[in-house]
């Protein structure tokens, strides 16, 4: 098309506004630093030691948040499409069971599959990932083809997947897992997996068509449809990826615990959603970044670790966590209202 012929010098009527946008992560990062410093200060005052300068504590903290972090990378993408995934915690439980049942050693007389012991480590890992992906696929298909709200579809999956996890071994834990499998969850590996997953999807969201379409659907589903995006198919992809990542979290968690238990991952979906929201992902869709989610995950970890460090009751931890989540959303709403007025 000969649009070039129309090219004429542009009148720059509006002065360039030098409002060099700070990445929204900067704010969240400052919040993280602030919270850490408060604990540092309280540490010296109340316990008489440093909170931050303790290598072991930091390692434990990062390890603890890795599993939630892996989940929240998927959940962030779901929330960017304007949806929600309540099933992640249950899917973690289910996939932990499935993966562990294929990672048992032959020394154990009462293995779930006596014929399938001493399998190469890839087998349980792939089985866990596949189970998670299938759960996500079902979520996505329900949302895309029946038009039920994501809240309901994933609520159903949350209940059903937990039930399946319990049914799988009639509630018995799956133990005696191979050393190779256990290695996935030991040392620094969970952290490496978390950061790798975060990096991959950070790139995917920012630089690929998959990412652009994800934001488009969340920003305006109707406009996305009119722009030729196959919204249903794309949503299925996003939910399947979220399920796959929950599966990965299930694998990591069962490897770390060296056992699979049906009760694993209870309420993890809430922490994952909280991490995304604290990290600046908007529940109304179209806005959010993986970097923010990573920081949000670490904020949650710092708080848990800090409260433990100060020997504050677990009850208070939950109360404060609740307040922080609500405060994050209020701040988000406030920001949006201000933007609309501007």
């Amino acid at each position: 098309m000969a649009m070039e012929q129309m090219t004429q010098p542009v009148q720059r009527l509006e002065k360039p506004r030098h409002r060099r946008k700070m990445p929204s992560e900067a704010n969240i990062f400052l919040v993280l630093i602030g919270i850490a410093l408060v604990f540092e200060l309280l540490g010296w005052l109340l316990v008489g030691q440093s909170f931050l300068f303790n290598r072991q504590r930091l390692v434990v903290m990062i390890l603890q948040v890795s599993v939630i972090g892996i989940i929240s990378v998927g959940v962030t993408q779901v929330i960017i499409t304007g949806g929600i995934d309540l099933s992640s915690g249950s899917v973690v439980g289910l996939t932990a069971m499935v993966a562990a049942s294929l990672a048992q050693t032959s020394d154990y007389a009462r293995a779930v599959y006596p014929m399938l012991t001493d399998m190469p480590v890839l087998v349980p890992v792939l089985a866990g990932l596949a189970a998670g992906a299938v759960a996500g696929l079902i979520n996505g298909s329900l949302i895309a083809y029946t038009g039920i709200p994501p809240f309901i579809a994933t609520l159903g999956m949350m209940v059903a997947a937990r039930g399946m996890a319990k049914w799988y071994t009639r509630g018995q834990p799956v133990s005696m897992l191979s050393d190779n499998y256990a290695a996935i969850g030991s040392g620094i590996w969970p952290v490496v997996i978390f950061l790798l997953v975060a990096l991959i999807f950070h790139i995917a969201l920012r630089y690929t068509r998959y990412g652009k379409f994800t934001y488009a659907i969340g920003a305006n589903m109707q406009a996305a449809r009119v722009s030729g995006i196959d919204v249903g198919r794309h949503l299925i992809k996003v939910y399947a990826i979220a399920g796959l990542l929950s599966g990965l979290a299930g694998v990591v968690l069962s490897a770390r615990a060296i056992s699979g238990q049906a009760g694993m991952g209870v309420a993890y979906e809430l922490d994952a959603i909280a991490a995304a929201v604290i990290g600046g992902t908007s529940l109304s869709g179209g806005v959010g970044r993986i970097t923010g989610t990573v920081i949000g995950t670490i904020i949650l970890g710092v708080m848990t670790s800090g409260f433990t460090f100060l020997r504050i009751d677990a009850y208070y931890q939950e109360i404060v966590k609740g307040v922080i989540i609500v405060a994050a959303v209020v701040a988000d709403q406030y920001r949006q209202r201000k933007r609309r007025k501007a």
């Binding site: 068509r209 305006n220 406009a223 722009s227």
Partner: peptide
């Protein structure tokens, strides 16, 4: 309602169909 992706930038709004 059916045109703009209000929370996205101009560049993303413009390229969405051609991608």
């Amino acid at each position: 309602d059916t045109g703009c992706f209000l929370v996205l930038d101009i560049l993303e709004n413009m390229q969405m169909a051609v991608l």
